[in-house]
Amino acid sequence: MLKLALLFLVISVIAGLFGFGGISSAAAGMAKILFFIAIVVFLVFLVLALIGGSAIAGR
């Protein structure tokens, strides 16, 4: 997911350099959305790992 966010960021920068403002802002928006989704997924997995790890250690 972060690879896609980075890809959209690069597309946004390149499109901005060539003067395609609409494509650049759309790609930047997609990069932002994908980045925040990746952060949320990371936090969910982190919480699940902490809960699962403490359950195993408590046995």
Results as ranks from 00 to 15, higher is better:
residue 1 M to N: 06
residue 1 M to I: 05
residue 1 M to Q: 09
residue 1 M to W: 10
residue 2 L to C: 11
residue 2 L to Y: 13
residue 4 L to A: 06
residue 4 L to C: 06
residue 4 L to P: 00
residue 4 L to G: 02
residue 5 A to L: 02
residue 6 L to R: 06
residue 6 L to H: 01
residue 7 L to P: 01
residue 9 L to A: 11
residue 10 V to K: 07
residue 10 V to L: 07
residue 10 V to Y: 05
residue 11 I to Y: 02
residue 11 I to P: 00
residue 11 I to G: 02
residue 12 S to K: 03
residue 12 S to P: 00
residue 12 S to H: 00
residue 13 V to T: 01
residue 14 I to D: 05
residue 14 I to E: 07
residue 15 A to D: 09
residue 15 A to W: 10
residue 16 G to N: 03
residue 17 L to Q: 11
residue 18 F to W: 13
residue 20 F to K: 10
residue 21 G to W: 11
residue 22 G to D: 14
residue 23 I to F: 12
residue 23 I to K: 07
residue 23 I to N: 03
residue 23 I to Q: 11
residue 24 S to I: 02
residue 24 S to E: 11
residue 24 S to Y: 00
residue 24 S to V: 01
residue 24 S to D: 07
residue 25 S to C: 07
residue 25 S to M: 14
residue 26 A to G: 06
residue 27 A to T: 00
residue 28 A to N: 04
residue 28 A to C: 07
residue 28 A to G: 08
residue 28 A to P: 02
residue 29 G to N: 07
residue 29 G to M: 05
residue 29 G to R: 01
residue 29 G to H: 02
residue 30 M to R: 04
residue 31 A to D: 04
residue 31 A to F: 00
residue 32 K to F: 12
residue 32 K to W: 06
residue 32 K to T: 06
residue 32 K to A: 12
residue 32 K to S: 10
residue 33 I to H: 11
residue 33 I to G: 03
residue 34 L to W: 12
residue 36 F to Y: 07
residue 36 F to W: 05
residue 37 I to G: 03
residue 37 I to D: 09
residue 38 A to R: 05
residue 39 I to F: 09
residue 39 I to E: 12
residue 39 I to R: 13
residue 39 I to Q: 14
residue 39 I to S: 13
residue 40 V to D: 02
residue 40 V to Q: 04
residue 43 L to I: 06
residue 45 F to N: 14
residue 46 L to G: 10
residue 48 L to C: 10
residue 48 L to R: 10
residue 50 L to K: 07
residue 50 L to Q: 08
residue 50 L to I: 09
residue 52 G to M: 12
residue 52 G to E: 12
residue 52 G to I: 14
residue 53 G to S: 03
residue 53 G to V: 01
residue 54 S to L: 15
residue 55 A to P: 01
residue 55 A to M: 15
residue 56 I to H: 15
residue 59 R to N: 14
